[in-house]
Each structure stands twice: as C-alpha cells, then as structure tokens.
Simulated scan of single mutants.
Amino acid sequence: FLGLEIFGVALPILFHAIYGIYIALQAKNNPGRYGYVRNWQFALQRWTAWFLVIFLIWHVFYLRIFTKAINGTPISYELLQTLFTSSPITTLLYTIGMFAAIFHFCNGITTFCMTWGIAKGPRIQNVINVLSMCLCAFLCLVTIAFMASYFVM
C-alpha cells in the first residue's frame, strides 16, 4: 500500500497543492467589492485551499508519519474515536477541514465544467453550480453524521 499512498494519493495531492498555491497567489479576491455568489465562491475556493494545505500537512504528519510510521500504531476506528472524543479542538479542526475539502471539491466541479467547456452558457453554469452546492450540503451533513458516530458509545 505504500506505493499506492505515494503515487496514487500523495504525489497527485502534492502537485495539486503546488499548482494551487501558484494559482492562489495570482488570485485577486474581492468579494467585498463585488458581492456576487460566484465571486464569493471564487474567494472561498482560494481560502479553503490555504486552510487545506496547512490542515493536510498536519493530518498526514500526525496520523501517517508520527502515529503509524514512527510509533507503529495502526490507524483504526478506536484510535480516531480516542483522538476526537478527547479533544474538542481536534474534533472541530477535523470537521472544519472536511467541510473545507468538501466545498473545495464541489466548487471545483463547477469550475472544471466551466473551464473545460462542459458548461458553456450561464443557464447550465447555474444548474451545475446549484447541483454542486447541493452535493456540498449533502456531504457536509454526512460529515456531521460521521463525526457524531465517534461520540455514540
């Protein structure tokens, strides 16, 4: 699984992060000046990206490198339950991290469809945006249920 973790997960995410940082540094966020929904989504896409870079570095270091590789502790449901139930700050950070990743993914679907010419007109762009944000809301609800499962004994 190490090869899959490196070549199937870590390297694509690392490429996406590096290229995303390049894009985010060029972005001109101005949602306060132009309060359109898509303008806010543009800004949130960049802000969630910055949060996710920091969150994923912490997450990978703590769970994959420190806990599993250095300490030799297998990552299990019980380990995560202990992690989340012992610290409300950790639970909150993971919940925000998952919400940020979900929004970043779902908003990315809309942007992908516009950039690649799948959604050419304003009407289909709005439809795809609404569907993507509905998916975002649904996945956030699933995340809340998922996180709550750690607190049910």
Rank of each mutant, 00 (worst) to 15 (best):
F1A: 11
F1H: 12
L2M: 09
L4R: 06
E5R: 13
F7C: 12
L11G: 04
A17K: 04
I21K: 10
K28Q: 13
G32N: 14
Y34L: 06
Y36G: 15
Y36R: 15
Y36P: 03
V37S: 05
R38A: 11
N39E: 14
F42N: 12
R46F: 02
V53F: 12
I54S: 09
F55V: 07
L56N: 08
I57A: 15
L63Y: 15
L63C: 04
R64D: 14
F66M: 12
T67R: 05
T67F: 05
A69S: 13
P74A: 11
Y77A: 05
E78T: 14
E78P: 00
Q81K: 13
T85C: 03
T85L: 04
P88G: 08
T90E: 12
G97C: 00
A100V: 00
A101Q: 03
F103D: 01
F103C: 00
N107Q: 10
N107V: 04
I109E: 01
T111Q: 15
G117D: 05
G117S: 02
I118E: 09
G121A: 03
R123P: 03
C134V: 13
A137K: 02
L141S: 07
A145T: 03
F146L: 08
F146K: 04
S149P: 04
Y150R: 02
F151Y: 14
